[in-house]
């Protein structure tokens, strides 16, 4: 199972140097440098959008628009946080901005191909299958509970950060997390 990386955390100093250089070039209008940044981060940004929205098409739109928005705001990036962290924030805001847009109602995430759609009982014992179960259960959560669970439990944001980003009280955030866990356990144990 792949270890999760918290938003913006880099594993290699060399990568960070390269990334900062790419950011500097992109800030000067270098589209190729920005494409390199896109290649570095699209997987994480798309994963975040996919888990927050529970819908592939919407997640693609959100990720795409997040990179467009980030390009336009690139001059405002001062390097006080990691570029990935900054991108994460933009992507989360993109998801929240469009979550109520007409015609983009959430559908369940379709992570499993038809031939893989076997019963849960048959899949027990396989880590990847448990992961898919969890991904699907997260996607099926009500929107508020899903946003809190994804930000707090998957990506490691604190309750204060999560509540602040979502525009709710910390108490509401904790209540939504409790609700999410309860629903997930019920779903996964079913």
């Amino acid at each position: 199972m792949t270890a999760v990386s918290k938003p913006g955390v880099k594993s290699e100093p060399a990568e960070a140097i390269t990334e900062m250089e790419q950011v500097r070039r992109a800030q000067q209008g270098d589209v190729a440098a920005y494409e390199a940044l896109y290649r570095m981060h699209i997987g994480r940004i798309y994963a975040l959008c996919l888990r927050m929205t529970g819908n592939r098409a919407t997640a693609e739109d959100c990720a795409q628009d997040a990179f467009i928005r980030a390009w336009r705001k690139l001059a405002q990036f001062r390097g006080t946080s990691a570029f990935g962290t900054w991108l994460h924030r933009i992507a989360i805001n993109e998801v929240l901005t469009r979550r109520r847009s007409a015609g983009r109602e959430r559908a369940h995430m379709e992570l499993v191909d038809n031939e893989q759609q076997i019963t849960r009982a048959e899949r027990r014992g396989n880590a990847n299958e448990h992961r898919l179960d969890l991904e699907q259960a997260i996607a099926a959560l009500p929107e508020g509970a899903r946003h809190v669970f994804v930000m707090h439990s998957v990506y490691g944001y604190s309750h204060e950060e999560t509540a602040g980003t979502l525009g709710v009280a910390v108490g509401t955030c904790k209540a939504q997390l409790h609700r999410a866990r309860k629903l997930l356990r019920a779903n996964l144990d079913a």
Binding site: T2, V31, G43, E60, F67, W71, G156
Partner: peptide, 28 residues
């Protein structure tokens, strides 16, 4: 246990299509 499993989910998932051409078309 649920939080541990959630934190262990893959950090990156690649989209099915390359989003860069549309992004590039927009930013340039």
């Amino acid at each position: 246990a649920l939080d541990r499993a959630a934190a262990a989910l893959p950090a990156a998932i690649d989209p099915e299509r390359d989003l860069w051409p549309a992004i590039e078309a927009c930013i340039v």
